[in-house]
């Protein structure tokens, strides 16, 4: 032991200095542990935790967004189907309405035509009657002129009847 201490003493070993240096080292060890390594590692860990939390939140919100997008797409698809149905229905309805209106118009036109035909027939009959009457009067006038005498009621009646009888024949 003495030999070792003597040999070490040749390169300057002194246990008091060694102890002092060790205490000095322990002090700086305590200081750095307490004020540098500990707090900095704590800050680094805290930051890493926050970053991890942020990443987790980002992933979570991304999946939620994806789900919401899927849901929205589903709603849009459903709405599209419903809209198509509505359009189809309205198309059918309008077709039906148009058909109904067409039929109604047709009926009205037919009734108008029928009415017109009826009116034409009545007018035709009226015209025929008028014509007949006027023709008779003309004939009477012509006959009066030919006979040179005024036809009285009785004669007139007789002639008219004779003429009408000949006309019918």
């Amino acid at each position: 032991m003495e030999f070792i201490l003597e040999t070490l003493g040749k390169i300057g070993f002194d246990w008091r200095m060694g102890l002092f240096n060790l205490i000095n080292f322990l002090i700086i060890y305590w200081v750095l542990k307490r004020y540098a390594f500990g707090p900095i590692m704590k800050v680094i860990n805290e930051r890493q935790e926050k970053m991890k939390e942020g990443m987790d939140n980002y992933k979570k919100s991304q999946s939620e967004l994806q789900m919401a997008e899927q849901k929205a797409q589903g709603i849009i698809d459903e709405a599209k189907v419903a809209a198509n149905k509505v359009v189809e229905q309205s198309h059918d309805d309008s077709k039906q309405v148009a058909e109904d209106m067409k039929n109604k118009a047709k009926t009205e036109i037919e009734s108008l035509i029928a009415q017109a035909k009826k009116n034409i027939d009545i007018d035709k009959q009226d015209m025929k009657d008028t014509l007949r009457k006027e023709t008779v009067e003309l004939v009477v006038l012509a006959v009066e002129k030919v006979l040179g005498e005024r036809m009285d009621g009785k004669k007139d009646e007789t002639y008219i009847q004779e003429i009408l009888g000949s006309l019918k024949a």
Partner: peptide, 14 residues
Amino acid sequence: PTNDFNMTFSVALG
């Protein structure tokens, strides 16, 4: 300080 054997030896021993 490390050019002093007392420092290196004491820390190494510790």
